[in-house]
Amino acid sequence: MTAQHVLELAVCTVRDKKAALVARNRAMQAVSRYPGFVSWRAVTACEMTDLLADLVEWETLDAAEAAGERVLNDPEFTPYMAAVTRVRLMQHFVTERQI
């Protein structure tokens, strides 16, 4: 049986959406090279212009947690972290069911 991938969901508000989107693209490029990275789906809210969400897929929870530590010291991720004014949700999930 193959282990399930882990989905990391981060929902945050940002101060300057344009700057945050540029910074997020830079962060995405950096994280795409991290061990265990699978994919990153970046979305923006339709109704709340300052709300962004990131759904990042990792091979394992260990890889996700290691990445969480690594981004704290990654200069490529720093501008994105600086653009965030509030983290509303940051959680790891596994798929229970899909249709």
Rank of each mutant, 00 (worst) to 15 (best):
E59T: 11
P79K: 02
A64Q: 02
N25E: 15
V38C: 10
S32K: 08
V22P: 00
R70A: 15
Y34E: 04
H92N: 06
K18G: 05
E65D: 08
Q29N: 14
F93W: 04
L72F: 04
K17G: 01
Q98Y: 12
V14K: 02
R97N: 13
L9I: 07
P35A: 03
V71H: 01
M28W: 07
V94C: 07
A45M: 05
A20H: 07
P35C: 04
N73D: 14
I99K: 14
K17V: 15
L21K: 03
V38H: 06
A67T: 00
L89F: 03
L89N: 05
A23Y: 03
R88A: 10
Q4Y: 04
F77L: 09
G68A: 06
F77K: 03
M48I: 15
T95L: 08
D54E: 09
R97H: 15
R86G: 05
W40E: 01
Y34H: 03
V22W: 02
P35K: 04
T95C: 02
N73E: 13
L51R: 14
F37A: 02
M90D: 09
R86Q: 13
H5M: 06
V43P: 05
R26H: 07
W58N: 04
H5P: 01
A53Y: 00
V94G: 04
K17E: 08
T2I: 08
T85Q: 13
D62H: 10
A20I: 02
P79H: 00
R86M: 09
R97C: 10
A67R: 01
W58Q: 02
V94P: 02
A53D: 01
Y34G: 03
S32R: 11
V38F: 04
L7T: 06
T60N: 07
M48N: 14
R33Q: 15
R86V: 11
T44Q: 13
P35T: 04
R70L: 10
M48D: 13
R70P: 00
W58V: 00
R70Q: 12
T78C: 08
H92D: 01
N73I: 07
R24C: 11
Q91K: 09
P79C: 06
R41H: 14
A45D: 14
A20G: 00
H5N: 14
E57P: 01
S32V: 01
Y34L: 08
E69I: 10
R86N: 12
A42L: 10
L52V: 08
S32F: 03
R88T: 14
V43T: 12
L61V: 07
G68I: 05
C46S: 13
L52E: 05
T44F: 03
Q98N: 13
A30L: 08
V94I: 14
E69N: 11
L21Q: 07
E59C: 04
E69R: 13
L7R: 03
M81V: 10
H5E: 10
P75M: 05
M48K: 15
F37Y: 09
A30V: 07
Q4W: 06
